[in-house]
Design a protein around this nucleic acid. Structure first.
Lengths: 188, 188
DNA sequence: ACACCGATGACAGTGACTGTCATCGCGTAG
DNA sequence: CTACGCGATGACAGTCACTGTCATCGGTGT
């Protein structure tokens, strides 16, 4: 694979997260990341489209997990119930990754550009979920709203889990958040 | 106010929207926008923090309209009902601006960076709405979810309105979108 | 007329990102 | 074993977004 040490991408990712944590995102140059990874700036941009993307390498896998879970939900389940079981399934994606998620989240929340990137990844995820729902025969508008709402529930639950001590599983927080949605939408 | 012609900000905004529409966002340089507005690149960046921000000058006023409307909702209204009346009130913000909104939306949707900026503006709006709900005594989690859901409803309705011919008022689309939310959350 | 001040211009500088071409190291055909 | 092919990397120049700094303009109040 690589010319010298293997796993260039992984080294860049580790170096970036470390530097972003230590000195902040803006204060870190692409050249510094590359240097710590034993590569050049040019190679950094061959692996990642920009400085932010290095923190979102896992987004594609997460989207896949979401779509797979939603696709596998029982055909008879109502959209919101399919979404509920999807959240349940996806929670395992983050098992054993609480510490990593915490550090990454801290870096992202500390910088506006990174928050922007996070939001568009979630929007892409929402869009993929809506498409999957449509494939299940759900009406366009209902699919879009169910997906948006599902992501909203995920966000709220995920943020609380990250702030927690990592002992309670993510699934707990997602269930809690979903329960609150029902309260909200029914008019309290 | 200005040293030469007045309304430098407005001229920059118009020039930017025109150029972004004509040749695309990425193909437009800040210097070109400034030149068309009869100013220099440096002055462009004095008025707008970056190339994207020039398209989002109205975001602050919109957020204000949202917050004011939500603040003015009857104290007795349930969160989701207060949100409904807020959407109703905010719809007038876009009256007579369908053509402008359409052109702006086309530019934004054609570029990923601009979509990112749009999303973070909406997130900021959601956050402001949640804070306003909390001020009404709504529990944190319910406030956050109601705000997120309210924005989701707004997005869906707004996008349909923009794609429409401009004859039907935005409020119609927002009501329609809100109606669908009820269907979704109740389990279809 | 004069002093003051906010908005603008001029200019240099940093860093993100790109295009291009040479080079390296490994697998493979011969 | 050797020559060749090819993907990954390095080297280097270039564009452009964005910033810091200082001079200058034009209106305002005295």
């Amino acid at each position: 694979m690589g010319r010298w040490e293997p796993n260039a991408r992984g080294r860049l990712e580790q170096a970036a997260l470390a530097l972003y944590s230590e000195r902040g995102f803006e204060q870190t140059t692409a050249a510094q990341i590359a240097e710590r990874a034993g590569l050049t700036e040019r190679t950094f941009f061959r692996h990642y489209a920009d400085k932010r993307e290095v923190l979102f390498g896992g987004a594609h896998a997460l989207e896949e997990a979401f779509v797979d879970a939603l696709t596998g939900a029982p055909d008879t389940a109502a959209p919101i119930d399919a979404m509920a079981s999807t959240l349940e399934a996806v929670a395992s994606f983050f098992r054993e990754r609480h510490e990593f998620a915490r550090q990454r989240q801290a870096v992202i929340m500390a910088n506006a550009e990174l928050r922007e990137r996070e939001l568009i990844k979630l929007a892409s995820l929402s869009s993929a979920l809506a498409a999957t729902l449509r494939r299940r025969g759900v009406k366009d508008s209902v699919a879009a709203l169910t997906a948006e709402v599902g992501i909203a529930v995920f966000k709220v639950g995920f943020e609380r889990w990250v702030e927690d001590d990592g002992k309670r599983p993510l699934a707990d927080f997602l269930r809690e958040s979903l329960g609150e949605l029902t309260v909200v939408a029914s008019g309290d």
